[in-house]
Design a binder for these strands. Structure first.
Lengths: 219, 219
DNA sequence: ATCCTAACGGCACCGAGTGCCACTCTCAAT
DNA sequence: ATTGAGAGTGGCACTCGGTGCCGTTAGGAT
């Protein structure tokens, strides 16, 4: 805690990134060629020129070789929100959602390959849904903080975040189904306009039923 | 195909349900006592007085012993929507969401136990998120069908379904955190009133950006 | 050039999940 | 009552994902 954990030896960060990329690439290739479930971790490790044990040092699971950068992206979006405290809450979240979309647009080929895989591999679908949920939770958390003090803060935050994420996912899905040919940026922007307009009409309060205690987490 | 596949022998449906219940109960007990990951399937099977192989005939995975009735409940809700074609689309979905809530209210003790487990076991959290997504997909699918022909049908369906599910989950979570003491029914009803009001304000169309082709699924 | 340490990879191990098969138990037909 | 068929059962063996352990290696710091 006193000073930087400056590494005395071992891989440099660039080296780690390079290996990670190599392994991930090898995995994607094998998945595309033989299918996800028919590909074993041993095969990936061998194709990448790495020990099986090392594979699991770079990826927590076989699925992570496909969604390996999720945590980074999530952290990026969280940072983005952190630095957006001057804007209005919901527009800030919409910007964050557009930033998420950009990560897909940045490399359509990879996005399409991942999409094809997730469509047919249950465990990958589960991972993707969990990832989406992570974004939604980050948005909800942010909005809850910004709405703090207003009536129904938690509920409005959850609903608004869900609406934004749903709009994003819908536009993304259509873009992927179109083979990356639609104007995803424009469509998402329009969709989020709709969501923002909707959210503005949330009633000030929802009656006495919501005035009960919110309850502090027991478990 | 010519006549009913009348079962000649084997377990009666009641027998199957009874065994399933016994195994599930044994599993829940062991999970509560020793933790989910520290409990092996062998232990569950032995505690339930069945063979390990039989466990996997009743549950696809160890996680399924906790969320074993998900498929049934999902089918119930789908049926409910199927039979609600006389009502307005969104109110019908809201009723379905209230029906889902009822399945938790029906047995608070089990709901709380599952909640405690899902809070601390990653793989169970993943399963629960996937289950929620199943509901949301069912709602989206239904609304898309009902909105068919109107502008932005798919997008509006996705956003509205997400909002309803988010409201449901938020109310459910607060109820669970309160130790099953809040008036979940009343709170959900109020929250869904808010969602319905919001959704009514969706603009008729979202501009030209959304008028491009929707794309027929290629992959 | 040498030291020092993080990373590597091999090994053994655990547990989830599956295919296979012999056994048994129940019911239907005779 | 006997028999035959079929479904459910459970044991066995196997695959594979994931982890702890440890001797070895390689590459940066001095």
């Amino acid at each position: 805690m006193s000073e930087q954990p400056r590494p005395r030896a071992g891989r440099t960060p660039q080296g780690r990134r390079r290996i990670r990329g190599t392994v991930s690439l090898a995995a994607l290739d094998l998945f595309a060629a033989n299918g996800f479930e028919a590909t074993t971790v041993d095969q990936i490790a061998e194709a990448a020129g790495v020990g099986r044990r090392t594979f699991f040092r770079y990826f927590r699971s076989k699925e992570d070789a496909v969604f390996g950068d999720h945590e980074e992206r999530l952290a990026d979006v969280a940072d983005l929100l952190e630095r957006a405290d001057d804007a209005e809450p919901l527009p800030a979240v919409c910007l964050a959602a557009e930033a998420v979309l950009e990560t897909y647009l940045a490399d359509p080929a990879v996005a399409l390959q991942r999409f094809a895989l997730t469509r047919q591999v249950p465990s990958l679908r589960a991972k993707e849904i969990a990832s989406t949920d992570d974004y939604q939770r980050a948005f909800t958390r942010y909005l809850r903080g910004r709405y703090d003090g207003e009536p129904d803060a938690a509920l409005r935050a959850a609903v608004a975040a869900a609406a934004v994420v749903a709009a994003h996912n819908q536009v993304l899905r259509e873009w992927l189904k179109s083979g990356a040919e639609l104007d995803a940026r424009g469509r998402l922007h329009a969709a989020l306009d709709g969501v923002r307009g909707m959210a503005a009409t949330w009633p000030g309060t929802l009656g006495t039923a919501l005035d009960e205690r919110v309850g502090s987490a027991p478990a």
